[in-house]
Design a protein around this nucleic acid. Structure first.
Lengths: 300, 300
DNA sequence: TTAATGTCTTTTATCGTGAAAAAACAGTTT
DNA sequence: AAACTGTTTTTTCACGATAAAAGACATTAA
């Protein structure tokens, strides 16, 4: 097996959902843009839809024949990228404990264990290395640096520097900038979530990321924007891993975000500074408490 | 051809230089540590040295028979890593002009042009992407963002934030920290270089990097330390590219470094701040003047 | 009994290959 | 003519294979 057709499968599933809404599908190029894939993939999708009797396809005419059922969809797990599969698998091992700092990472073993080629694992590790959790020994193995207290502190230190700057830049944006409308929209979403926090608390994670990314974008600095990838990745797995008091934590965070948004809208730099600082401090605290007391570092 | 033996060749060359200094070589493991390679490679080196009559090798006895001549060395270009070759080639194209922002990068074409496999090019591009000069379109090609004025400004903005912090942390280090000795050594090297600036000005680049890395290490933050890789990479090629007033520029920079070192040693945060700021400002200026006026950005 | 050498095994670095997906080209329809 | 469909070419993605290099194990010398 050379390359999985997950792009096709994922796009196919998304296309199925489109079928509910219309009587006939748009042109091939239009569908390509809609689904974010090439026309080649669109045509494969259409071909299968015709085969399974979902649509009648003749040149421009693509008429919907029936509503898609549950079996028409490809299984979720077949729509993931190899990179996603490897990352998930790797992070599970990393967070599941037994991953001592200083431990060496074996490409071949990882590849075999996950059931993929070594090239994909190598490429993943190279991409992943920018998160600061692993390091390469020249001409030799990778070394795990570990998800330690030190890591969390270094990460949050930079995060705080960057976010304070971005927040200040955000507040200084002219009032006709479109970001204010984005902020209003996010504020409304926060209010909505706050009112339904008891049942929807687990949706905060995604809102959190969108909110902070909006702020970081105001820095107009690619290094600051890109650094948020590190934070997002860590928080993503952290949220999945640490479910203790999740509801309470998220409720507090929503409140902090609302105060932060309020401060931004006031454009008062002092207030922005204070609100931002308060939120970042509690975010750091949350992250730190989830990290087990570090064992003694190994001799390298 | 599957893998070049540049590790062996490079280590061989370095080992030849060792031959001048002694009558007999140390044990295999010791040599391995000295050269930074495995014993397997050491044995290949010894085998060849025996073959070419450089040494007599019998178990522990490795006696030098003759001084190595110029032809004993492997050609310099055969000792480079593939990664280095690709990087150089890529940077040449990037800096040689004709590399408009927005242009797409073709892995296959690059690989063919350099004469290497696509895997190596892919891995290079992934590693290189953290420098912020290129970006990947999902499931598709890479896009060149260009070595523009905006890039230089974003880079220097972060550099300045990080270095000011690191410098302050450095100055706060206890006097029994070994870094002060390192600083003294670097200061002496600066003085020496200053006195011979007319002929050795091109050696500044390397000294510059060592000096700044020493300071950044005081931050004890892997993200700050790692970020210096971006700066080092840019300055490395910048130094090679922009030879205008090289001597003058470096002479000024050496002076600034010496003032900066002086300030650090005084441990006076105000002085450190001022000296650091002055140097970073002129470094930014130097970088900016070397970038051609940016053309209008392309429509994406 | 420690530390070296000699030998064998495992892992990394790199390539060529082939399927998936994108992109380019050519011919049609409106 | 503009936008679409049909067809062909090119590029990306991922694999298995192989030489270089590292590492582990067994043996021998000091």
């Amino acid at each position: 097996m050379s390359k999985s057709n997950n792009v096709y499968k994922d796009a196919y599933n998304r296309c199925l959902r489109l079928l509910d809404e219309t009587r006939s599908l748009p042109s091939e190029p239009e569908l390509g843009i809609l689904l974010g894939v090439s026309r080649t993939t669109v045509r494969s999708i259409l071909a299968r839809m015709e085969e399974t009797g979902l649509i009648a396809w003749n040149k421009r005419a693509k008429t919907v024949l029936r509503e898609p059922g549950a079996d028409d969809f490809f299984p979720e797990e077949e729509t993931d990228t190899l990179a996603q599969i490897i990352e998930r698998s790797f992070m599970r091992r990393l967070l599941a404990g037994g991953a001592e700092a200083g431990m060496q990472i074996n490409e071949l073993e990882l590849a075999r264990e996950i059931g993929v080629g070594t090239t994909s694992v190598r490429e993943f590790l190279i991409r992943f290395s920018r998160f600061g959790l692993i390091e390469k020994r020249r001409n030799s193995h990778w070394v795990l640096k570990g998800f330690t207290r030190a890591f969390a502190l270094e990460l949050t230190e930079i995060r705080e520097i960057f976010e304070m700057r971005s927040a200040a830049a955000f507040a200084a944006l002219p009032s006709d900038s479109p970001v204010w409308a984005d902020l209003d929209r996010l504020e409304a979403e926060h209010h909505l979530l706050a009112s339904q926090i008891a049942t929807r608390f687990n949706e905060f994670s995604e809102l959190d990321e969108r909110f902070h990314r909006l702020i970081h974008r105001a820095s107009h600095n690619r290094f600051i924007v890109d650094f948020y990838d590190v934070i997002a990745m860590i928080f993503h797995y952290h949220y999945q891993w640490n479910k203790a008091q999740e509801r309470e934590r998220n409720e507090v965070a929503v409140g902090e975000h609302l105060a932060y948004i309020e401060a931004l809208k006031s454009r008062d730099l002092g207030k922005v500074d204070a609100a931002c600082r308060r939120h970042l401090k509690s975010a750091r605290q949350t992250l730190l408490t989830s990290i087990p007391e570090s064992r003694l570092p190994m001799k390298s």
